[in-house]
Design a protein around this nucleic acid. Structure first.
Ligand SMILES: [Zn+2]
Ligand SMILES: [Zn+2]
Ligand SMILES: [Zn+2]
Ligand SMILES: [Zn+2]
Lengths: 152, 152
DNA sequence: TCAATTATGTTATAATATAACATCAATTTC
DNA sequence: GAAATTGATGTTATATTATAACATAATTGA
């Protein structure tokens, strides 16, 4: 669970970081993409594409599914957000700069998602895929269960 | 990649195992569920729900989406098949009796999926979730990349 | 036997995602 | 700076994946 005091800071950080990374990479964080990223970061929770679309429509009533999916694709490609496959949902990346193989702890009770990194998990994945002579590209690790706050 | 000689044996094994487990648990592997499991096992590859539905329609033309999804739900609940979340697809479990937290190696090139188990991965997942005071329930670990046969 | 439970049938629709083509804007090339 | 190229967005339509809701049938079990 996130205990941010002024969540506006989280949003601004996310946008600023994305801006910097985009500049480095020579890709464009257009107005639309900024808006979508901002909407995703409206909370620390995951969001569903069509809820996002509804939000976007409040700003630009002409928005349509491709509008949102294209922005989501861009933001994913650049590591600013992640897709949670077990929920068909999207969430802002908490550390786009140093993100490697991360995993997600998804609470079945409060729906909170924690993005974690573990050098250990990285190593084990690498070593076990190595044993299988498999060259990993993308690792999806999602663990659902009950989070700290919901265990009582 | 699977190198079965007589794939009919794989299918029969899967059905027999499911039968035994169902008897143990007092749940019913009905004719329909058997048929769906058989269709899933028509190959060692993953199958998409609607492709499965098309196959089923050849046998029972009145089959509809709920027909297939209910059977899929049953087969998943009982661990006879797995859902591959990154592909929205389904695949037969190669070891429903001893299946624990397994992971899937998905080849981006030949589409083959290998179901693997690793005591090591289990341990790491347990230990890292433990550090987060998170009680895991379901672990989804899917690794896409290039398999042994496709690395050249 | 009849009530409860479980499985299947059936219709409709919800939810998620992409294809295809048009237009517009920014960048590069000449 | 006009023309060409590329990248982004607009727009329409449709594909794909999945479930809700209610009806009927089959099974169980008291
Ligand atoms: Zn915050
Ligand atoms: Zn991340
Ligand atoms: Zn086989
Ligand atoms: Zn399995």
């Amino acid at each position: 669970m996130s205990n941010c005091k002024t969540h506006k800071t989280c949003i601004n950080e996310a946008l600023k970081t994305a801006e910097i990374i985009c500049n480095e990479r020579g890709v464009k964080l257009t107005k639309l993409r900024q808006t979508v990223l901002k909407l995703i970061w409206k909370s620390h929770n995951y969001v569903k594409a069509y809820d996002l679309l509804d939000d976007l429509k409040k700003i630009d009533s002409s928005a349509k599914p491709p509008t949102i999916y294209r922005s989501l694709d861009f933001l994913m490609e650049n590591g600013f957000i992640h897709k949670i496959r077990s929920l068909n949902a999207f969430i802002g990346c908490t550390h786009p700069n140093e993100h490697k193989e991360c995993y997600f702890l998804i609470c079945d009770n409060c729906q909170n998602i924690e993005e974690c990194c573990s050098e250990q998990i990285n190593k084990v994945v690498t070593s076990t895929t190595g044993k299988n002579h498999f060259e990993p590209n993308q690792v999806t690790l999602e663990i659902s269960g009950i989070c700290q706050d919901c265990i009582s």
